[in-house]
């Protein structure tokens, strides 16, 4: 009526209407005056659309989004608490550990020559267990820091990073050989690698862990062969792979591969705490990337990981995994 009488227009006016069979429908009304071509007076052009279903869906979507935001907030909160917990636990455990190691050392010195073989053995076990625990705690602290520290994104030259890591690992292998008298030969094949925007420190951790594992688990291969490959993907993301010809693992247990302190080999076969791959995965998650692996026992392993294109990375790294 207003449209006709006062020349006003109605745009996307929502009106709820009760139908004959007592349902409530939402109607979308548009109306305006319209002049006719060969007459002086005007008519009203009105469209009425039943948007009941659309409105219901929209409300449901808004409701779900609200719930989702609530859940995301809860998860973030839980993650923050877990971080704080794991940090303070590993930090507070160090002092008593130092005392266990320190005082067993004092005891050993106090007993001196009068300690029999059994006593010395017991003291050795205490000392080496304390050292083991210290390593686990340190690893846990590093892992926790990877999740907590703010990311500093900059141009990182993967080629030189990998070269540095390889040099470090080669030097370690050499000094181990000198100590044990057993020579090891490692053949490296490294493809040209790009410069990527990422957190330099985290990338160092990543390469050290992946290449370090490759070196470690190919200890029984003669010669050990380690390959690093790179390919730019059609969507702009960056695919890397690290392949070795070492011990490999059973894919049946692949789900455990990236778990904290999870291992697929016994400590007597290959030393380690099982935090390396968990750390690598954490680094990748914070960069919005991901990692997976393929292997067969005795036939080496290949680790593939993807880093997103610079554009995706710039959109903002995820706070926690």
């Amino acid at each position: 009526m207003d449209v006709l009488l006062r020349g006003r227009e109605l745009w996307d006016f929502e009106h709820e209407q009760r139908t004959d069979d007592d349902q409530v429908r939402t109607m979308l009304i548009n109306a305006r005056r319209m002049p006719l071509p060969d007459r002086d007076d005007e008519v009203v052009l009105m469209t009425i659309t039943d948007v009941t279903v659309q409105r219901a869906v929209q409300q449901r979507v808004e409701e779900l989004n609200r719930q989702l935001e609530g859940k995301v907030e809860q998860v973030s909160e839980v993650n923050r608490e877990l971080e704080a917990f794991s940090y303070s636990v590993s930090h507070d455990l160090r002092a008593p550990l130092r005392h266990v190691a320190g005082f067993s050392d004092k005891l050993a010195r106090h007993l001196g020559e009068s300690a029999d073989e059994k006593s010395r053995h017991y003291l050795d076990v205490i000392a080496s267990s304390a050292r083991r625990m210290a390593t686990l705690i340190d690893d846990l602290l590093v892992y926790s820091r990877l999740g907590r520290a703010a990311m500093r994104l900059q141009a990182v030259d993967m080629q030189s990073l990998v070269a540095d890591t390889r040099a470090l690992l080669d030097a370690n292998v050499l000094s181990d050989s000198e100590a044990t008298g057993v020579a090891r030969r490692i053949e490296w094949k490294i493809a040209p690698l790009p410069i990527l925007v990422s957190d330099d420190n985290m990338m160092r951790q990543l390469w050290l862990n992946l290449l370090g594992n490759a070196v470690k688990y190919s200890a029984n291969a003669h010669p050990a062969r380690i390959e690093v490959d790179y390919a730019r993907q059609p969507d702009g993301s960056h695919l890397f792979s690290v392949r070795d010809n070492g011990a490999g693992f059973d894919m049946a247990y692949a789900g455990k591969l990236f778990g904290v302190f999870q291992r697929l080999h016994s400590a007597s076969e290959f030393a380690g705490t099982g935090i390396g791959l968990a750390s690598v995965r954490r680094v990748l998650t914070r960069h919005n990337g991901r990692i997976w692996a393929e292997s067969r026992p005795g036939e080496g392993a290949t680790f593939h990981f993807i880093l997103p294109s610079n554009a995706e990375l710039a959109r903002g790294p995820s706070g926690h995994d």
């Binding site: 550990l97 130092r98 190691a101 320190g102 000392a127 210290a134 705690i137 340190d138």
Partner: peptide, 9 residues
């Protein structure tokens, strides 16, 4: 930083 390792401490 206090080392955990006794000798280093």
């Amino acid at each position: 930083v206090k080392p955990v390792d006794v000798d280093q401490f």
